[in-house]
């Protein structure tokens, strides 16, 4: 699998970017940063990038590079937990909707339709406005926003697999529902789910940045990419590095996940597999 990703042209770039970010995020989360991200070096306020401060310092004299690493870690924590919750919830809802059909299917899918009718960020705002800002409310908000996408991605193929003969065969043996749903349906949905998870990670990172930018996600003094962007707004002309580095960090991470998602789609799709393998 890894070899397939790295022999695919966009997979190689996307995979390398994602790997790099994972390393940065882990370093940030375990406080292995060049400086303490919360330490205020009052004398060195608003210093331009240098050998000591790789990406300069902010208004309070905090090291931007360290805060960026911590921020990437924070964003990944939120993004990955949100996507994990959304994919599990969406898969369970989608599978059961496809399998039981009728009333349950109608109920689940109509609720998902309602959720999908809102723009993602607006719905997340609504949820946070009700629950109050914070790291874990933004995880919950992003998870709820992306659940309908997983539900739909799972339900469609699950419906078609449900009518395949090997599922009929399983029913003639009297296999249990759990066995059929996991071994026959879920196992055949691994490919579309993997692609969807990768792409959803990119979107959820962006949503997290957006929420933090609006002051509704991660709360200061903790750092997050969106928060750093928000803080840099007033100092844009005086200290452009405050804006540039977090912005580039967001951009490249999303590029990386999208490239990886594209590559996974090609690799896991049996129709294109022969070409890349």
């Amino acid at each position: 699998m890894l070899r397939a990703i790295f022999s695919h042209p966009s997979g190689r770039i996307g995979g390398a970017i994602v790997l790099l970010y994972v390393v940065i995020a882990l370093l940030g989360l375990f406080d292995l940063t060049p400086h303490d991200p919360l330490q205020q070096y009052r004398i060195d306020r608003l210093k331009a990038p240098s050998a000591v401060y790789w990406m300069g310092t902010d208004l309070f004299g905090r090291d931007v590079a360290s805060r960026l690493m911590k921020g990437v870690g924070q964003s990944f924590l939120v993004g990955i937990s949100a996507v994990a919750i959304a994919s599990v919830a969406g898969t369970v809802l989608g599978l059961t909707a496809a399998w039981f059909g009728k009333l349950w299917d109608g109920l689940v899918m109509r609720v998902m339709d309602v959720l999908l009718a809102f723009p993602a960020i607006l719905l997340a705002l609504l949820i946070i406005a009700i629950a109050g800002p914070g790291t874990w409310t933004s995880v919950a908000a992003i998870a709820i926003v992306y659940t309908p996408i997983f539900t739909r991605v799972v339900r469609g193929p699950a419906l078609s697999i449900k009518s395949r003969e090997f599922v009929d065969a399983a029913r003639t043996f009297g296999s249990s529902k759990t066995y059929i749903l996991t071994r026959h349906l879920l196992l055949n949905l691994v490919a579309p789910l993997t692609v969807q998870v990768t792409l959803a990670l990119a979107w959820s990172l962006l949503t997290e940045a957006g929420l933090s930018f609006l002051g509704l996600g991660t709360q200061p003094p903790a750092s997050s990419l969106g928060l750093m962007l928000a803080d840099s707004r007033n100092l844009m002309e005086k200290a452009p590095w405050l804006l540039i580095f977090p912005a580039i960090a967001i951009m490249i991470s999303i590029l990386g996940f999208n490239l990886l998602g594209d590559a996974l789609r090609d690799i896991l799709d049996p129709k294109t597999r022969s070409r890349t393998a």
């Binding site: 003969e165 090997f166 009929d168 065969a169 003639t172 071994r183 026959h184 196992l187 691994v190």
Partner: peptide, 14 residues
């Protein structure tokens, strides 16, 4: 027990 028509669809490929 039953044997189905399409041998390509009656075995779970995974």
């Amino acid at each position: 027990q039953m044997v189905f028509q399409n041998p390509y669809a009656s075995l779970n490929p995974r």
